[in-house]
Amino acid sequence: HVRGQEPLTASMLAAAPLKEQKQLLGERLYPLIQALHPTLAGKITGMLLEIDNSELLHMLESPESLHSKVEEAVAVLQAHQAKE
């Protein structure tokens, strides 16, 4: 977890309005992704936020699954940028 941020629980997330749920998840994912890919953090976070909220909550608790999704997104993004 990121210092200064309390862990995000499923009940906290469920209590938030739908529109804010992705922002809540993003606020917690962003610093973790920024530590891996500082320059792509915003874009990668946006890509991962399209995943189902329950899976995102699981990824916040499981660094391995977060890292694998991040690397998958980075690979696709870089392949796309290379094509352009």
Binding site: E27, G46, M47, A73
Partner: peptide, 26 residues
Amino acid sequence: VDAKPFVPNVHAAEFIPTFQQKKSSL
């Protein structure tokens, strides 16, 4: 098990954290 396979969307909107939103609005 029923989770949809993750297909990264390169056109997904970039996420902007709240602290950066405030910085850019100042």
